[in-house]
């Protein structure tokens, strides 16, 4: 990658990507999905072309990274543009898998496996359960219509540009990983020594979350409680009740 040309291209490509997402987002009235897909593919292709043109593929690792990155980005776009929550969840599994691949490329085997097990195995399954529990029949309006798509895409583009483009690293080569005997063992040691307190706190947090989740879901509200609250017009509560 040429350093001089990097920021402009980055901005241009992120803008193109944001435009693609803007077109792809579900809309009730009209659909620009094909145009959006086309723009997205062009943007991705351009990005890959630029990367390969600038850096070239010398290693299998590089190839793998590009493949994982492309997959992750495409799948994450798919997650947010799907109208059906189930497909979103499934595409999210793909994002996790490719993220795990990228993490693997960074010599973090334990984390990659943990990511797949915890995310794809546990969290996503919970999501699927909730989707089945709380899904209405057919496509509801709120699934088919996105909210403020332009503003969201603008905000996303700005953040992407700010996070990615601003980094003009002087020395961007990675330090070669020191051959620590058994990454997993090393991580375990670090976590159990340096981060002992944090680990305990994390455990407490998990416990609290479990208890909290159970408590929240068990709590039952009377049916008419909500209705009465909703029927009162704006400011009605303050008018009827004494101010102090």
């Amino acid at each position: 990658m040429n350093e001089s040309c990097l920021p402009i291209w980055t901005y241009l490509l992120t803008a193109l990507g944001a435009l693609a997402i803007f077109c792809l987002l579900p809309r009730a009235d009209k659909s620009y999905r094909s145009a959006g897909g086309l723009i997205g593919i062009i943007a991705l292709g351009l990005a890959l072309f630029l990367l390969i043109h600038n850096g070239g593929i010398e290693h299998g690792t590089t190839l793998c990274f590009y493949a994982f990155a492309t997959l992750a980005i495409v799948c994450s776009v798919a997650v947010i543009v799907q109208t059906r929550a189930v497909y979103s969840a499934l595409f999210f599994v793909m994002v996790i898998l490719s993220t795990a691949g990228m993490v693997l490329l960074l010599d973090a085997e334990f984390l990659a496996v943990a990511l797949v097990i915890v995310y794809a195995g546990a969290i996503l399954v919970t999501y699927l359960f909730v989707i089945m529990l709380a899904q209405q029949e057919g496509l509801s309006l709120y699934d088919r219509k996105s909210r403020a798509p332009f503003g969201a895409c603008l905000a996303g583009f700005l953040l992407m540009a700010a996070l990615s483009g601003a980094w003009t690293p002087m020395d961007h080569s990675m330090v070669p990983s020191t051959p620590i005997a058994g990454e997993t063992l090393a991580i375990g040691r670090v976590v159990m020594t340096n981060y002992m307190v944090v680990l305990q706190l994390a455990g407490v947090l998990l416990l609290l979350a479990m208890v909290g989740a159970v408590a929240i879901v068990r709590k039952r509200f009377p049916k008419d409680f909500d209705a009465s609250r909703e029927s009162a017009s704006i400011g009605e509560v303050g008018r009827k009740a004494a101010p102090f």
Partner: peptide, 22 residues
Amino acid sequence: GALQGYGLTMALGLGILLLFVW
């Protein structure tokens, strides 16, 4: 009253601020 609206404003503001700073 929609949290997403606040989030949108916040994200926009954050993005603009970051770009401005860079």
